[in-house]
Design a protein around this nucleic acid. Structure first.
Lengths: 346, 346
DNA sequence: TTGTAGGCGTTATCAC
DNA sequence: GTGATAACGCCTACAA
């Protein structure tokens, strides 16, 4: 009796097929498909037989078969440069969360700045119905190629690309506010760390900062100090910068650079914020816990991912309206690293 | 002329098929497939025609078709509870990196402690050739189910599961070393924060700690203080604990809990490490930058993911040997939060 | 060297 | 209600 209800010992492989279920229930595969999808009425008795057969065989429909027939993957992709910093991890998390909610699997792809990025993205494009592209992982042409295959893409933390939706956190005004705050502290000589050539975010932050400085009659630095967006990048670039002509204030494109810079400064005996003000961007966990607390700009990382996922879902639902370009608000978080404040100095 | 080499305007959809290429090149689909895969010799002239046709049509073979025919996905999955902390993000990153290297796409699934975890994992199982499961995201039965479908799984940061490979960072000895260090500082009353019921890592750390305390003749706390593995969890639990009977030393299951506990302590006017020693686990970025620096245990998060990816790849390559159980070494990182040191107090 | 035809596992359209 | 059967897009013996 037992042997009858258990899966055949021989079928060691990827599971039973709809044919085996049909045979066991003594119906056609069409009927099995019907009870599976509830797409048409099936007699109660028949349904029961089919369900019993499915259970006995531990039948799970092949995603490949289903997708091929339905002509879509029920999966989306997301490509980012790296997951090492807290920033991208948060965006991806926000993305995954709503993608899962609306029933789509998510494929990730980290380009790591590899040369093969284009091929990797194109390969990804063959596995998904839509995808989101973070920052400058690939050129606009690659995105155009993907769009050309009729798979929608939404870009995040990146300038607009023809034909794609986009979400960004507000940058210029936030940078202006930050610059104004620093100027009000009396800082007169500035430096900006981060690479505007590589990051649209950094570019706009640099732009906003310079505008603020100009408005406040403060000298604008010649150019940004380009450096990788991590602690080491910040530390090394700061070591050089502070060794030659140290500014009063160091505005960094993200918290990691800032934290790295602070490390370098402390090693050189430079006190923060007395000798040097330092600010970051993102408000990661370490920014809260460092001493002095890091003045920074908080941006809604989770929401960036969530918005992208929702928009993609709309597109895949048939929305063919003009691309939308969302800008999410940020928040200046003033702590101690930007200089002494009058009241509660914390 | 142009119209001839461009893709037909009508074929707006998911791209050309092998049939269209074949027709255009005036060969059979078999030949197209051969030039695609290099699986058999093709006359130079023929190959040229086919390649021209592919280029003109911007042909990309359908992953679905390929996978269905080849009977595998060329993709792996990874399931984790959440990506919010630095820990899982690092593991996933390490995983993705080597998975990509060996040419497999990666699908991620965050269970968020959702009830539907089982269904989600089973759904994932239908889309991949193998998968890694982090921590206690799902019950052993679910893993058994997946294994039953003949898809290999390797578990990470989790106790062994019959039939699956596993990688873990060393826990007990590290915890013993940490406990010994704290005892040497003279601390006599301990508390442990984290939930051993939920995390195998936490369980083994608790075990190691109690053993060390016993060995040093120090009172062993009745039980761990269960709390969520994030800052809020640490902060709230610590607020209660420190309000009633504060210990000398607080050993936390990860850095986030520790940092949260420190925040709570400071708000209560308790000084670290003078009044209370606090230690974490993981050595995340914030641990380095907090003041006092957080004493912690560094574990090779990236490598955990990388090992899992490599092992999975071996399995998928046909390795059917007995499950392997790897334990990666950790490193005690002593900073200031565990108490004053004689020499360089940093 | 190249073509024919069957198979991979579903869905969905027709008839009955 | 149910059952044939044609897609879906590709791979691969087997023939020629």
């Amino acid at each position: 009796m037992k042997a009858l209800t258990d899966p055949a010992p021989g079928d060691t492989d990827g599971g039973a097929t709809i044919y085996q279920v049909a045979e066991r229930a003594d119906v056609s595969i069409a009927t099995v498909s019907r009870v599976l999808r509830g797409t048409a009425p099936v007699a109660a008795a028949t349904r029961a037989r089919v369900e019993a057969a499915m259970a006995a065989l531990r039948f799970t429909p092949s995603r490949l078969g289903v997708s091929l027939a339905e002509r879509h993957h029920a999966a989306n992709g997301i490509v980012f440069p790296d997951l090492s910093g807290p920033y991208f991890a948060e965006v991806v998390l926000g993305y995954e969360e709503v993608a899962a909610e609306v029933g789509r699997s998510v494929l990730i792809l980290s380009t790591h700045g590899r040369q093969a990025a284009r091929e990797m993205v194109l390969d990804l494009a063959a596995r998904v119905d839509g995808m989101v592209v973070l920052a400058r992982t690939v050129d606009d042409e690659v995105i155009a190629e993907v769009l050309g295959k009729n798979i929608p893409v939404v870009v995040v933390a990146r300038d607009r690309v023809r034909g794609a939706d986009s979400v960004n956190a507000e940058n210029e005004h936030s940078a202006e506010a930050l610059g104004a705050h620093l100027a009000a502290h009396g800082h007169r000589s500035f430096a900006f760390m981060g690479d505007p050539e590589i990051s649209a975010d950094a570019y706009h932050r640099w732009t906003g900062l310079t505008r603020a400085l100009r408005a406040h009659g403060v000298n604008v630095p010649q150019r940004p100090v380009a450096c990788p967006f991590d602690e080491d990048g910040g530390r090394e670039a700061a070591a050089v910068l502070l060794g030659t002509d140290p500014p009063d204030a160091l505005v960094c494109a993200n918290d990691e650079i800032a934290l790295g810079a602070i490390t370098a400064a402390e090693q050189m005996g430079i006190r923060i914020p007395d000798d040097l003000a330092v600010t970051g961007w993102d408000d990661v966990m370490a920014a809260r816990h460092s001493r002095p607390g890091l003045t920074t700009v908080r941006q809604p990382m989770r929401q960036l991912g969530a918005w992208a996922a929702r928009r993609l879902h709309e597109r895949l639902g048939g929305d063919t309206s003009a691309p939308r370009h969302e800008v999410l608000p940020t928040q200046l978080v003033v702590r101690a690293s930007c200089g002494h404040h009058n009241k509660e100095d914390r």
